[in-house]
């Protein structure tokens, strides 16, 4: 089975094409249609890429400092955060910062080594889309979203911590 996209709680076709041009490549050779580029490429070519706003999303490596992208957030309909290994949890902080501090409202997608056992947490960190790798079962992964009946902490989608809701 190829990679499968879970978006807003169900499986969807993925219109985005991942493109990984060399850093020094010209932006004029990029394919048409919605494309996902490394954030470093976006930052290097942002002035020419701005002409295609709406069809460009960026992908963040775990070490990418999200602060560097803040001026461009309203230009980016999709931000993908990479999880080369599911045990590398930096992307959770990246997601919360994007949503809670920088008010990013586009699609926030977790990409990489993720599956059923991460989805509940990823969603609370602010991800609304998950690209499930070939090696995992996306239907099974969907079940992970319902692993817990609630949460103690405030997070994305739950502005108040449990203790502030406990007293009604």
């Amino acid at each position: 089975m190829p990679e499968q996209l879970i978006r807003h709680g169900h499986l969807e076709a993925d219109p985005w094409q991942r493109v990984d041009p060399a850093a020094d490549a010209a932006s004029s050779t990029l394919p048409d249609g919605p494309i996902l580029l490394p954030a470093s490429f976006w930052l290097a070519h942002r002035d020419t890429l701005r002409q295609r706003v709406g069809t460009i999303g960026v992908s963040l490596a775990p070490t990418f400092r999200v602060e560097d992208l803040v001026p461009d957030l309203r230009l980016l309909p999709l931000i993908a955060v990479e999880f080369p290994k599911f045990t590398d949890g930096r992307g959770y902080s990246t997601a919360r910062l994007l949503r809670e501090r920088y008010n990013y409202s586009g699609e926030l997608r977790a990409v990489g080594d993720i599956g059923r056992d991460q989805l509940f947490f990823l969603r609370r960190a602010g991800f609304d889309a998950f690209l499930i790798p070939e090696s995992r079962d996306a239907n099974d992964a969907l079940l992970g979203l319902a692993d817990y009946p609630g949460a103690y902490q405030a997070a994305v989608g739950q502005r108040l911590p449990h203790f502030r809701r406990r007293f009604g």
């Binding site: 045990t87 949890g89 959770y92 919360r96 103690y152 997070a155 203790f163």
Partner: peptide, 16 residues
């Protein structure tokens, strides 16, 4: 106890 609850299944700190 308050910090135990906060740290339990924390949405950001599962993979430190």
């Amino acid at each position: 106890e308050i910090l135990r609850q906060w740290s339990t299944f924390h949405p950001e700190f599962e993979y430190l």
